[in-house]
Write a protein that binds this DNA or RNA. Structure first.
Length: 557
RNA sequence: GCGCCCAUAGCUCAGCUGGAUAGAGCGUUGGUCUACGAAACCAAAGGUCGCAUGUUCGAAUCAUGCUGGGCGCGCCA
């Protein structure tokens, strides 16, 4: 719709012999209804160049634009020189008919052009269960991936497994400790300091008792064994949230495939030795200080394999890369970028999304530590309590750059306070209407062949159409800015308009979908179908289910 | 001390590349069911957009400084 208006403005400018590129014409949605359906600031932009007052320019433009009589209902000049457009309902009706593609799916803008994106997210250490912070990372990463796919990118989801190095040894020692305790070789006083603690380990060790028995003494192998099992548990939890990775990239494979050596070779000129350690001269590439790659005891820092991993990523030649990191890894961005640059790749192909923290709450009460597991409440426990839909939605409803309060109480509520419920309820209501419609046997006669939408003339109906037509722009903005939370807000707006419209039907039959002339019912059905489709599209991207029916609660007295 | 993020209504937050009277939800107060699901809806009250300076036709939005909060600053991972 915006582009249609912009094109008409461009044509008008041409007639006035003013040269101005179409792409630069800004058409926007005014905040206030009185300012029209759309507006443009073009007259103000041109004022300086043409050495004329904005209002004069606007007047000339409007004179030409007024010729599009069947498109614009009214054009006004307002304020310092805004041109406000009021569109004919028929313009909206036409636009509404054109939201579908050949497969009867909503048309989506293709901004990706099949470009290849690698999105790395979550990458949780396989040393224990995931907590809520991981949950946010997983969901935002997944939604971003889904969204980018929808707007035409070729997306690969990747999980980097830290299965090599100190934490795996620590895990192994922890396993050995719990094993010995299990078979009675050790008592509580001999508890080692640097082991992972937790009920989950105790249970896992008990389960793997026989395998561990074979490995006693070799903590590395025990660690690997436990790590594999813990990774499987992570995958099971992710499956509950409908999250799957295309590839689990093993850190140890970097060693076995020689990537580490390759990395050292590639950085040869950018490193130096000092105090028996090997340093990466990262300050040459914008980092605060140089970083150690190989410690003076000969072992590698965590950073080294990470560089090798990114070398591997870039060798696989994607158009760009997105890393979704937790806020606690913020300090890592600069040095990783320095490394990428030192390896000779363009740093602007590597983007970072920094997730802020999650505070778990129950009403007004903060949920901190859980006594049982000695760890933060796990992601699994959250899913158990509020279900996968609410879990996903709540992680998504804030911009990733602000801290998130996750209220478990709210997430469970079946009322409009709970946004997930509110959205799903709106969807279920539409489905319910459609069921009634097919009971009446009218469904079959609704064809698009001679569809007449002119009866959709209520202000509420036009409002819904206007908002509906914004969905491509919402998706585009969310994708471009990497801010998928916008989708949820948009869906809530639509649901609200629909609920309002629906309720008006209680008193006024004109608002009832199932009443009126056949053409009217048909037109209303068509509109609701489009609304439902937008809701479903949004649900799909957010990974929330679209229930057609929701169980009524017990009647309360 | 340095770096990243945040600060908007009583609470939780939106606010698109700077635009015309700053928006939702919850909470508060009042109202709406013989009718497509009241699990819903409507209305009202409620704001020096943390503070200051600057950029310009125009700033919640951009820049700089300050204040307050979160995270990070290892030859840890």
């Amino acid at each position: 719709m915006k582009t249609q208006i912009a094109e008409r403005i461009a044509q008008a400018l041409k007639k006035l012999e003013i040269h101005f590129p179409l792409e630069k014409i800004e058409v926007e949605f005014p905040k206030v209804k009185e300012h029209g359906d759309y507006s443009t600031n073009i007259a103000m932009v041109l004022a300086k160049e043409l050495k004329n007052t904005p209002r004069k320019i606007a007047e000339e433009l409007v004179a030409v634009l007024s010729e599009y009589k069947d498109f614009f209902q009214k054009i006004e000049i307002a304020g310092p020189g805004f041109i406000n457009f009021f569109l004919e309902p028929s313009a909206y009706h036409e636009a509404l008919k054109n939201v579908w593609d050949k497969n009867n799916e909503l048309v989506l803008p293709n901004i990706g052009n099949n470009k290849k994106v690698l999105i790395e997210f979550l990458s949780a250490n396989p040393t224990g269960p995931m907590h809520v912070g991981h949950g946010r990372n997983a969901v935002v990463g997944d939604v971003l991936a889904r969204l980018l796919e929808k707007v035409g990118y070729q997306v690969t989801r990747e999980f980097y497994i830290n299965d090599h190095g100190v934490q795996i040894r620590t895990l192994g020692r922890s396993g050995q400790y719990y094993y010995k305790r299990l078979v009675g070789d050790i008592n509580d006083e001999q508890l080692a300091d640097d082991v992972y603690r937790g009920e989950y380990l105790e249970i896992l060790v008990k389960k793997l008792k026989e395998e561990i028995k074979e490995l006693v003494g070799d903590t590395l192998l025990i660690g690997k064994l436990l790590g594999e099992h813990l990774l499987e548990k992570i995958k099971v939890e992710l499956e509950r949230l409908d999250i799957r990775f295309d590839r689990y990239f093993s850190e140890s494979s970097l060693y076995s495939k020689g990537k580490i050596d390759e990395m050292f070779e590639a950085l040869k000129d950018k490193t130096y030795e000092r105090d028996g350690a090997l340093w990466f001269h990262s300050t040459l590439f914008g980092d605060d200080k140089d970083r150690v790659l190989r410690k003076n005891d000969g072992s590698l820092t965590y950073f080294s394999p990470d560089i090798a991993y990114h070398l591997d990523k870039f060798e696989r030649n994607y158009d760009f890369y997105i890393n979704v990191f937790g806020a606690d890894h913020g300090g890592y961005i600069q040095r990783l970028q320095a490394a990428v640059e030192a390896l000779g790749y363009e740093t602007n192909r590597l983007e970072f999304i920094l997730m802020q923290m999650v505070n778990l709450k129950r009403g007004d009460e903060k949920v901190g530590m859980s006594k049982r597991s000695g760890a933060y409440v796990t992601l699994g426990e959250v899913i158990d309590e509020v279900g996968p839909d609410a879990t996903r939605f709540f992680f998504m409803m804030r911009s990733h750059q602000t801290t998130l309060d996750f209220d478990l109480e709210l997430a469970k509520k079946h009322s409009s306070e709970n946004p997930v419920f509110y959205l799903q309820y709106a969807h279920a209501r539409i489905c319910s209407i459609f069921n009634k419609l097919s009971e009446k046997g009218e469904n079959d006669s609704l064809s698009e062949a001679n569809l007449d939408l002119t009866s959709l003339d209520l202000p509420e109906e036009l409002e819904m159409i206007k908002l509906l037509l914004k969905y491509p722009e919402v998706m585009m903005q969310a994708a471009v800015k990497r801010e998928p939370h916008r989708i949820g807000f948009y869906l809530l707006e639509i649901a609200k308009l629909f609920q309002n419209y629906y309720t008006k039907g209680k008193l006024n039959p004109r608002y009832r979908v199932l009443e009126g002339e056949k053409e009217q019912i048909q037109a209303k059905f068509y509109l609701l179908t489009a609304i439902r489709a937008v809701l479903r599209l949004g649900f799909k991207i957010l990974g929330v289910s679209a229930p057609e029916y929701m169980e009524a609660p017990e009647a309360e007295e």
